[in-house]
């Protein structure tokens, strides 16, 4: 009896948030899907059925090709870079050096900064001006007589987006370090000792003991960083504004919808973004839920 009452009460208590999520998340997703299947162009809603026209046009749209290419490069550089650098920092910190707390905070701090701030600062650092107007990293390289390192950063033809990924790596590698460090600390020392007794060297210990035990951490990092890079918007806007060589789907969506009033096309891009993130996230959520209930 009292158990039933508890149950009703709990349902009653969570119902406002369920309702809000239903309306403001799933309701609007459904509405966006409907808009993406319409002819809506201009300020006034127009729900004339267009079928998959908006999606089909996107796949033959040269700008969307640029977007997909940029997203792939960005994701590749950003995810691999953050994981490698984060793992390296975590292993270094795990050696029990003095002042570990200080370095841990130091590497984590960039994560607390907004992408806009990172973007503005890196815009200065990655200044591609030449000749007398050298500045930022390029000026530093010139002082250090490392002139071969001077480059055009985010204005490099075709690969500029990779320079933006460097700023993102700077921002997120501390976070990757933190989760790897937690993972390393959870591996019992007995395992390493046992391996040493069996004659394994340090490299073999990492290869055969540590890395396999850290694979769930790597998976989490992959998913979290991966879905962030699919949605990247503010960092690019802060570094370069709306310029086609650094275009990504989120910027195209914003520009075509609010500057160009192509609501149908904008909604289609939004839905494609949602689907690509979902493909990454949903298997992961199912996997974690399953392992958690098993435990």
């Amino acid at each position: 009896m009292s158990r039933d009452k508890d149950r009703y009460l709990s349902i009653l208590l969570i119902s406002p948030s369920i309702l809000a999520v239903l309306i403001f998340i799933y309701g609007f997703i459904a509405w966006s899907v409907r808009v993406s299947l319409s002819e809506w162009k201009g300020l006034n809603p127009d729900y004339t059925w267009a079928g998959l026209k908006n999606y089909i046009n996107l796949f033959s749209d040269p700008r969307f090709h640029v977007d997909i290419r940029n997203t792939l490069i960005f994701t590749g550089v950003f995810v691999v870079g953050s994981i490698l650098l984060g793992f390296f920092l975590a292993v270094m910190l795990d050696q029990g050096l003095k002042g570990e707390g200080f370095f841990r905070s130091l590497f984590l701090f960039p994560m607390a900064i907004s992408y806009i701030v990172t973007g503005v600062v890196w815009r200065w650092l990655m200044n591609p001006a030449e000749g007398d107007r050298l500045s930022g990293f390029n000026l530093l390289f010139s002082y250090l007589h490392l002139d071969f390192l001077i480059n055009k950063w985010h204005t490099t033809e075709n690969w500029g987006i990779a320079a933006i990924a460097l700023a993102a790596i700077w921002q997120m590698s501390g976070y990757t370090m933190a989760i790897y460090l937690a993972g390393l600390r959870s591996i019992p020392d007995e395992l390493r000792e046992a391996a040493r007794i069996d004659g394994a060297n340090e490299l073999q210990i990492y290869r055969h003991i540590i890395l396999p035990l850290l694979s769930p951490v790597t998976l989490s990092a992959l998913i979290i960083l991966g879905h962030m890079s699919l949605k990247v918007f503010d960092l690019i806007i802060a570094v370069a504004g709306k310029q086609l060589p650094l275009d990504v789907p989120a910027i195209y969506m914003w520009q075509t919808t609010f500057d160009g009033l192509f609501y149908g096309r904008g909604a289609a891009i939004g839905i494609l973004l949602l689907v690509s993130v979902a493909v990454l996230i949903i298997p992961y959520i199912r996997y974690t839920l399953k392992t958690e209930t098993q435990q």
Partner: peptide, 15 residues
């Protein structure tokens, strides 16, 4: 709408 279409075409051309 026309202007953003021209802007996209121009961006691709510059590239």
């Amino acid at each position: 709408s026309w202007k953003t279409e021209i802007d996209t075409a121009l961006g691709l051309f510059v590239q």
